[in-house]
């Protein structure tokens, strides 16, 4: 019964996402693709960046769109639902533990993130042209990384979605997302921070670092990256912490 109800909750989100497909694509893909075009194509063609830069940024681009997509899919509806529309109240009355409603949101975030990655990767490859070192040989690792990345950012979305008020959305973008993206090892490898030792270890609180590095290991294994056990351990630890915070927030907002 719970599985069937979970299925209908997911179907509802799928129907809603399909109706907003253009908006979702613009919100999650436009910026990464523009970045791909400028840094992966224009600047390389101008000779300002070496050709190898394309190899280095493609996993970062995939990671960035995937995580943006997952976080938007979870946080924004929750902020609106708990803040003013109260639409979610109907689902909170479903005969399942209310945690199931939160878990469904996480699934929706992971799915949306995975779909975004599957669209952005080929498009980026199309924009840049052949990318030396890009491989799909490590497909199981790639799938695992996509799921883990979607998971950690859906959990972040759950936490932010239950902790933030609607009027704080733009502030959240500036304070959380801007530094997270800039210091997320999306546009450079973590190893590249060797010259900035303080920054190198400070960025380790940023889950995007492990997403970028893990996707690097999966997509462009020739680029230096963190060891996989470290990536897995960090992603699991951060996801657990965010899940705990997010579930606590969800319960608090659902039952007074």
């Amino acid at each position: 019964m719970t599985a069937r109800i979970l299925g209908s909750l997911l179907l509802r989100d799928a129907v809603v996402a399909r109706r907003d497909i253009v908006g979702i694509m613009i919100r999650t893909m436009l910026q990464p693709l523009l970045f791909t075009f400028v840094f992966g194509k224009l600047l390389i063609s101008m000779g300002m960046f070496p050709k190898a830069y394309a190899t280095m940024i493609i996993p970062g681009i995939a990671g960035l769109s995937l995580t943006t997509s997952a976080i938007w899919a979870v946080a924004m509806p929750l902020i609106a639902d708990f803040g003013f529309t109260k639409e979610i109240e109907d689902r909170l009355l479903a005969p399942v533990p209310i945690e199931v409603i939160a878990i469904e949101k996480l699934f929706a975030g992971i799915l949306q993130g995975a779909m975004t990655a599957m669209v952005v990767l080929p498009l980026a490859r199309l924009i840049i042209g052949p990318i030396p070192g890009l491989t799909l040989q490590k497909l199981p690792l790639l799938v695992l990384m996509i799921v883990l990345s979607g998971g950690v950012f859906s959990a972040l979305g759950l936490f932010l979605g239950t902790a933030m008020q609607p009027q704080h959305i733009s502030l959240m973008m500036q304070i959380i997302f801007a530094p997270m993206i800039m210091f997320g090892c999306t546009y450079y490898p973590w190893r590249g921070l060797d010259h900035f030792p303080v920054l190198k270890y400070l960025v380790l609180i940023n889950p995007l670092v492990y997403v970028s590095e893990g996707l690097r290991a999966a997509l462009t294994p020739t680029v230096p990256h963190m060891p996989m056990p470290v990536i897995f351990a960090a992603l699991i630890a951060i996801t657990s912490l965010l899940l705990w915070l997010g579930m606590r927030g969800f319960r608090k907002r659902s039952i007074s």
Binding site: R4, S8, L11, R12, V15, T85, E87, D90, A94, P95
Partner: peptide, 27 residues
């Protein structure tokens, strides 16, 4: 069944879909 003080329809869905989905949320 609950009819809240503030109507809270699922705004992204049609009227009929609101009813159909609600029923499926109850299995």
């Amino acid at each position: 069944g609950v009819v809240p003080q503030q109507p809270n329809p699922d705004l992204q869905l049609t009227v009929r879909e609101n009813l159909v989905f609600h029923a499926t949320y109850h299995g």
